[in-house]
Protein backbone atom coordinates (compact mmCIF):
# COMPACT_ATOMS: atom_id res chain seq x y z
CA UNK A 1 0.00 0.00 0.00
CA UNK A 2 1.28 3.43 -0.91
CA UNK A 3 2.26 5.33 2.21
CA UNK A 4 1.40 8.93 2.95
CA UNK A 5 4.44 11.17 2.67
CA UNK A 6 5.80 13.53 5.30
CA UNK A 7 7.82 16.29 3.69
CA UNK A 8 9.90 18.92 5.45
CA UNK A 9 10.34 22.13 3.51
CA UNK A 10 13.49 24.20 3.78
CA UNK A 11 13.55 27.85 2.75
CA UNK A 12 16.87 28.58 1.12
CA UNK A 13 18.29 32.02 0.45
CA UNK A 14 21.54 32.29 -1.52
CA UNK A 15 22.58 28.81 -0.53
CA UNK A 16 21.76 29.02 3.17
CA UNK A 17 18.79 27.59 5.01
CA UNK A 18 16.67 30.29 6.56
CA UNK A 19 14.97 29.27 9.80
CA UNK A 20 16.73 25.92 9.86
CA UNK A 21 16.42 23.75 12.92
CA UNK A 22 19.26 23.28 15.30
CA UNK A 23 18.85 19.55 15.88
CA UNK A 24 22.10 19.12 17.70
CA UNK A 25 24.86 21.49 18.53
CA UNK A 26 27.06 20.06 15.83
CA UNK A 27 24.53 20.53 13.03
CA UNK A 28 24.86 23.85 11.27
CA UNK A 29 21.28 25.06 11.06
CA UNK A 30 22.03 27.12 7.98
CA UNK A 31 23.78 24.37 6.04
CA UNK A 32 21.37 22.71 3.59
CA UNK A 33 23.49 19.59 3.27
CA UNK A 34 23.63 19.03 7.02
CA UNK A 35 19.92 19.71 7.32
CA UNK A 36 19.02 17.38 4.48
CA UNK A 37 21.18 14.61 5.93
CA UNK A 38 19.50 14.98 9.31
CA UNK A 39 16.02 14.84 7.79
CA UNK A 40 16.99 11.75 5.82
CA UNK A 41 18.14 10.05 9.01
CA UNK A 42 14.90 11.07 10.72
CA UNK A 43 12.83 9.32 8.05
CA UNK A 44 11.58 12.18 5.89
CA UNK A 45 9.97 10.77 2.74
CA UNK A 46 10.98 13.65 0.51
CA UNK A 47 12.53 17.07 0.86
CA UNK A 48 11.49 20.38 -0.59
CA UNK A 49 13.91 23.24 -1.06
CA UNK A 50 12.16 26.50 -1.60
CA UNK A 51 14.36 29.17 -3.11
CA UNK A 52 13.56 32.57 -1.68
CA UNK A 53 16.57 34.27 -3.24
CA UNK A 54 15.52 37.29 -5.18
CA UNK A 55 18.64 37.49 -7.33
CA UNK A 56 19.82 35.64 -10.39
CA UNK A 57 23.04 34.87 -8.55
CA UNK A 58 21.04 33.24 -5.76
CA UNK A 59 19.36 30.96 -8.26
CA UNK A 60 22.65 29.82 -9.71
CA UNK A 61 23.80 28.94 -6.20
CA UNK A 62 20.62 26.87 -5.83
CA UNK A 63 21.53 24.63 -8.77
CA UNK A 64 25.02 24.09 -7.37
CA UNK A 65 23.55 23.39 -3.98
CA UNK A 66 21.16 20.76 -5.32
CA UNK A 67 24.10 18.92 -6.89
CA UNK A 68 25.98 19.06 -3.62
CA UNK A 69 23.03 17.78 -1.59
CA UNK A 70 22.26 14.99 -4.03
CA UNK A 71 25.82 13.73 -3.76
CA UNK A 72 25.03 12.68 -0.22
CA UNK A 73 21.29 12.33 0.07
CA UNK A 74 19.50 9.39 -1.53
CA UNK A 75 15.91 10.53 -1.46
CA UNK A 76 13.65 12.61 -3.68
CA UNK A 77 14.12 16.36 -3.68
CA UNK A 78 11.71 18.93 -5.10
CA UNK A 79 12.91 22.44 -5.79
CA UNK A 80 10.54 25.37 -5.99
CA UNK A 81 10.67 29.13 -6.04
CA UNK A 82 11.56 31.42 -8.89
CA UNK A 83 11.56 28.87 -11.71
CA UNK A 84 10.64 31.02 -14.69
CA UNK A 85 11.76 29.10 -17.75
CA UNK A 86 12.35 25.62 -19.10
CA UNK A 87 16.07 26.37 -18.78
CA UNK A 88 15.69 27.08 -15.05
CA UNK A 89 13.88 23.77 -14.62
CA UNK A 90 16.43 21.91 -16.72
CA UNK A 91 19.34 23.23 -14.66
CA UNK A 92 17.75 22.03 -11.41
CA UNK A 93 16.74 18.61 -12.72
CA UNK A 94 20.16 18.07 -14.24
CA UNK A 95 21.64 18.97 -10.87
CA UNK A 96 19.66 16.09 -9.36
CA UNK A 97 16.26 17.45 -8.35
CA UNK A 98 13.57 14.81 -8.78
CA UNK A 99 10.85 17.38 -9.37
CA UNK A 100 10.49 21.09 -9.95
CA UNK A 101 7.63 23.10 -8.55
CA UNK A 102 6.26 25.78 -10.87
CA UNK A 103 4.38 28.62 -9.26
CA UNK A 104 4.03 32.25 -10.40
CA UNK A 105 5.65 31.69 -13.79
CA UNK A 106 3.14 28.95 -14.59
CA UNK A 107 0.25 31.32 -13.91
CA UNK A 108 1.78 33.98 -16.17
CA UNK A 109 2.73 31.42 -18.83
CA UNK A 110 0.78 28.15 -18.44
CA UNK A 111 2.60 26.52 -21.37
CA UNK A 112 5.64 26.30 -19.08
CA UNK A 113 3.89 23.37 -17.38
CA UNK A 114 3.47 21.60 -20.72
CA UNK A 115 7.08 22.30 -21.71
CA UNK A 116 8.54 20.89 -18.52
CA UNK A 117 6.22 17.88 -18.65
CA UNK A 118 7.13 17.22 -22.28
CA UNK A 119 10.85 17.30 -21.50
CA UNK A 120 11.01 15.61 -18.10
CA UNK A 121 7.69 13.85 -17.81
CA UNK A 122 4.59 14.54 -15.79
CA UNK A 123 6.18 12.95 -12.74
CA UNK A 124 8.82 15.67 -12.53
CA UNK A 125 6.36 18.51 -13.01
CA UNK A 126 4.76 19.95 -9.90
CA UNK A 127 2.29 22.80 -9.71
CA UNK A 128 2.98 24.97 -6.67
CA UNK A 129 -0.05 26.96 -5.77
CA UNK A 130 -0.59 29.77 -3.26
CA UNK A 131 -4.31 29.87 -2.56
CA UNK A 132 -6.26 32.22 -0.38
CA UNK A 133 -9.84 32.61 0.74
CA UNK A 134 -11.02 35.99 -0.44
CA UNK A 135 -14.36 37.50 0.54
CA UNK A 136 -15.85 40.14 -1.68
CA UNK A 137 -19.37 41.50 -1.33
CA UNK A 138 -20.05 38.79 1.21
CA UNK A 139 -19.11 36.00 -1.20
CA UNK A 140 -16.07 33.85 -0.51
CA UNK A 141 -13.91 32.63 -3.37
CA UNK A 142 -10.67 30.68 -3.38
CA UNK A 143 -8.17 32.70 -5.36
CA UNK A 144 -4.73 31.96 -6.80
CA UNK A 145 -1.99 34.33 -5.66
CA UNK A 146 1.46 34.85 -7.17
CA UNK A 147 4.76 36.51 -6.39
CA UNK A 148 5.13 34.93 -2.98
CA UNK A 149 1.46 35.43 -2.17
CA UNK A 150 1.61 39.18 -2.63
CA UNK A 151 -0.47 39.52 -5.79
CA UNK A 152 -3.98 38.21 -6.38
CA UNK A 153 -4.75 36.98 -9.88
CA UNK A 154 -8.52 36.72 -9.89
CA UNK A 155 -8.09 33.10 -11.01
CA UNK A 156 -10.13 30.56 -9.12
CA UNK A 157 -8.23 27.73 -7.46
CA UNK A 158 -10.51 25.01 -8.79
CA UNK A 159 -10.18 26.26 -12.38
CA UNK A 160 -6.42 26.56 -12.20
CA UNK A 161 -5.73 23.10 -10.77
CA UNK A 162 -7.81 21.41 -13.48
CA UNK A 163 -6.06 23.39 -16.18
CA UNK A 164 -2.64 22.60 -14.72
CA UNK A 165 -3.50 18.90 -14.60
CA UNK A 166 -4.55 19.01 -18.26
CA UNK A 167 -1.33 20.80 -19.20
CA UNK A 168 0.77 18.05 -17.64
CA UNK A 169 1.29 18.72 -13.93
CA UNK A 170 1.92 15.43 -12.10
CA UNK A 171 1.43 16.73 -8.60
CA UNK A 172 0.02 19.76 -6.81
CA UNK A 173 1.47 21.42 -3.74
CA UNK A 174 -1.42 23.40 -2.31
CA UNK A 175 -0.27 26.13 0.03
CA UNK A 176 -3.27 27.61 1.79
CA UNK A 177 -2.15 31.15 2.58
CA UNK A 178 -4.98 31.70 5.03
CA UNK A 179 -3.56 28.86 7.14
CA UNK A 180 0.14 29.34 6.41
CA UNK A 181 2.27 30.35 9.37
CA UNK A 182 -0.59 30.02 11.84
CA UNK A 183 0.32 26.53 13.10
CA UNK A 184 -3.44 26.28 13.66
CA UNK A 185 -3.90 23.48 11.15
CA UNK A 186 -4.14 22.97 7.41
CA UNK A 187 -7.11 24.19 5.39
CA UNK A 188 -8.87 20.84 5.40
CA UNK A 189 -11.85 21.90 3.34
CA UNK A 190 -9.81 23.40 0.53
CA UNK A 191 -7.35 20.50 0.47
CA UNK A 192 -10.15 17.95 0.25
CA UNK A 193 -11.85 19.88 -2.54
CA UNK A 194 -8.62 20.11 -4.55
CA UNK A 195 -7.71 16.47 -3.98
CA UNK A 196 -11.17 15.36 -5.05
CA UNK A 197 -11.10 17.48 -8.22
CA UNK A 198 -7.89 16.06 -9.73
CA UNK A 199 -6.47 12.61 -10.37
CA UNK A 200 -2.88 13.58 -9.49
CA UNK A 201 -1.40 13.56 -5.97
CA UNK A 202 -1.92 16.57 -3.74
CA UNK A 203 0.56 17.77 -1.12
CA UNK A 204 -0.98 19.88 1.63
CA UNK A 205 0.99 22.86 2.84
CA UNK A 206 0.46 25.67 5.29
CA UNK A 207 -0.67 25.60 8.88
CA UNK A 208 0.90 22.48 10.37
CA UNK A 209 1.33 22.89 14.10
CA UNK A 210 0.94 19.38 15.45
CA UNK A 211 0.77 15.70 14.45
CA UNK A 212 -3.03 15.94 14.84
CA UNK A 213 -3.13 18.54 12.07
CA UNK A 214 -1.24 16.16 9.80
CA UNK A 215 -3.60 13.33 10.68
CA UNK A 216 -6.57 15.54 9.77
CA UNK A 217 -5.22 16.64 6.42
CA UNK A 218 -4.13 13.13 5.42
CA UNK A 219 -7.52 11.66 6.34
CA UNK A 220 -10.32 14.25 6.17
CA UNK A 221 -8.31 16.46 3.82
CA UNK A 222 -7.61 13.52 1.47
CA UNK A 223 -4.05 14.77 0.96
CA UNK A 224 -1.43 12.34 -0.35
CA UNK A 225 1.35 14.07 1.53
CA UNK A 226 1.77 16.66 4.23
CA UNK A 227 4.41 19.35 4.01
CA UNK A 228 5.59 21.29 7.01
CA UNK A 229 8.31 23.73 7.84
CA UNK A 230 8.36 25.35 11.24
CA UNK A 231 7.24 22.45 13.45
CA UNK A 232 10.19 20.41 12.22
CA UNK A 233 12.66 23.27 12.02
CA UNK A 234 11.99 24.48 15.53
CA UNK A 235 12.16 20.91 16.77
CA UNK A 236 8.63 21.05 18.19
CA UNK A 237 8.15 17.55 16.79
CA UNK A 238 10.54 15.25 15.02
CA UNK A 239 9.60 13.47 11.82
CA UNK A 240 9.80 10.22 13.76
CA UNK A 241 7.32 11.42 16.38
CA UNK A 242 4.86 12.57 13.73
CA UNK A 243 5.13 9.27 11.88
CA UNK A 244 4.67 7.17 15.01
CA UNK A 245 1.57 9.19 15.83
CA UNK A 246 0.12 8.79 12.34
CA UNK A 247 0.87 5.07 12.21
CA UNK A 248 -0.78 4.71 15.60
CA UNK A 249 -3.92 6.26 14.12
CA UNK A 250 -4.06 3.86 11.22
CA UNK A 251 -2.43 6.00 8.55
CA UNK A 252 -0.25 4.06 6.13
CA UNK A 253 3.23 5.43 6.86
CA UNK A 254 6.79 4.37 6.14
CA UNK A 255 8.58 3.81 9.43
CA UNK A 256 12.35 3.40 9.44
Amino acid sequence: MLTKRIIPCLDVDRGRVVKGVKFFDHVDAGDPVAQARKYQEDGADELVFYDISASHEGRQIMADLVAQVMDEIFMPLTVGGGIRTLDDATRLIQAGAEKVSLNSAAVKNPTLIAEVARKFGRCATVLGLDANRVTKDGVETWEVFINGGRVGTGIRVMDWIKKAEELGAGEIVLNAMNADGTTAGYDIEMTAAVSDAVKIPVVASGGAGSPEHMLDVLTKGCADAALAASIFHFGTYSIGQVKEFLAGHGVSIRLI
Partner: peptide, 15 residues
Amino acid sequence: DSALGLKVPHMGWNQ
Protein backbone atom coordinates in the same frame (compact mmCIF):
# COMPACT_ATOMS: atom_id res chain seq x y z
CA ASP B 1 -9.98 3.16 -9.25
CA SER B 2 -10.11 6.84 -8.43
CA ALA B 3 -13.08 6.08 -6.17
CA LEU B 4 -10.50 4.55 -3.84
CA GLY B 5 -8.69 7.88 -3.85
CA LEU B 6 -5.80 6.44 -5.85
CA LYS B 7 -3.87 8.94 -7.92
CA VAL B 8 -1.72 8.66 -11.02
CA PRO B 9 1.27 9.03 -11.08
CA HIS B 10 1.89 6.45 -8.38
CA MET B 11 4.25 8.60 -6.35
CA GLY B 12 5.86 7.87 -3.03
CA TRP B 13 7.01 4.98 -0.85
CA ASN B 14 5.43 1.58 -1.25
CA GLN B 15 6.26 -1.98 -0.19
